[in-house]
């Protein structure tokens, strides 16, 4: 009995060995040292100086920009993650139909995730331009005076959320792969029970897709809280800090103001936020994620 237990354990460790070794070799040291750095004053060039919990104290009690950045990011995550999942699943379902030209459609929807960010950013600056942009042009035709989008603190975050939907092609690919893994007999059984398309969607497709949805949810949360590139290219945090995402603020502190100790503290607070959410989500799995076997 004991040897079986040992054998099973050993096989398990054997399979995860590559990651475990890689973790110990490449990841553990950087993680530990960044915890250490978060308790120091560190300008990157000269050796860090221990300052105790001062970075954390300042961050929590005395840094309005930290609060702004956290709030801006929370709001972004709360909207963009669910929206991304709904759109990604819907698109994948559409692309899983038996219609002609699927290869072409799929390629088209994947396109925005491979076009370089500069190109996507520029086209968005054009589309959302309040003066000559296509979006306001079309709104004008139906009698609506469009907002200033990226130039208006109220609308800039929404503009970036809209733009994030262009990247949905990436998760679409994952959903498509998930859809292809749903065993045909489940549908046959549902048909025999006389289920209509909507019922089949509700009782077969969506439940069977939940493991992949769960994956995209977790990765979506991690990605949304570290959202950086588009905001860096398009708004640099403005207007008036309305798009000062957490990672953007962290980047400024780390590399522009050379305050890596403080940036490390910022990073670990973010880490705590993300992991709290993730652990809650992992706990919730039992209630809604269906693993086939």
């Amino acid at each position: 009995m004991r040897s079986k237990f040992l054998r099973e354990n050993l096989t398990g460790y054997g399979f995860i060995a590559p990651w475990l070794i890689g973790f110990l070799l490449f990841t553990s040291f950087p993680f530990l040292s960044s915890i250490y750095l978060s308790f120091t004053r560190y300008n990157i060039v000269t050796p860090p100086v221990w300052v105790g919990g001062q970075n954390y104290k300042m961050l929590l009690h005395d840094d309005p920009q930290f609060h702004t950045a956290l709030w801006v990011t929370l709001r972004f995550a709360a909207v963009s993650v669910p929206l991304g999942i709904v759109c990604g699943v819907a698109l994948a379902l559409l692309l899983n139909q038996n219609v002609r030209g699927l290869s072409i459609y799929r390629t088209i929807f994947f396109l925005p995730s491979i076009v370089p960010t500069v190109a996507t950013a520029t086209i968005f600056l054009w589309l959302l331009n309040p003066e000559i942009g296509l979006v306001n042009g079309m709104l004008h035709k139906i009698g609506i005076e469009g907002p200033a989008w990226l130039l208006d603190p109220k609308w800039a975050p929404w503009s970036l959320i809209m733009m994030s939907l262009w990247g949905v092609g990436g998760s679409m690919v994952i959903y498509l792969a998930g859809l292809k893994d749903i065993p045909a007999y489940l549908y046959e059984a549902a048909l025999l029970d006389g289920a209509n398309p909507v019922q089949r969607l509700r009782h077969v497709t969506i439940p069977m897709l939940t493991p992949v949805i769960f994956f995209n949810l977790i990765m979506g949360v991690i990605g949304a809280f570290q959202y950086f590139t588009e905001a860096y290219v398009m708004t640099k945090g403005g207007p008036e800090d309305s798009t000062l995402y957490y990672a953007l603020y962290l980047f400024q502190r780390a590399w522009r103001y050379l305050d890596m100790g403080y940036a490390s503290a910022l990073a670990w607070v973010l880490f705590a936020v993300i992991m709290t959410i993730n652990i809650v989500l992992f706990r919730s799995q039992k209630k809604w994620v269906h693993y086939g076997s």
Binding site: L125, W126, N129, P130, E131, I132, A148, L151
Partner: peptide, 8 residues
């Protein structure tokens, strides 16, 4: 603001 934005 609107005018300046039109300057791309």
């Amino acid at each position: 603001v609107k005018f300046e934005s039109g300057l791309a």
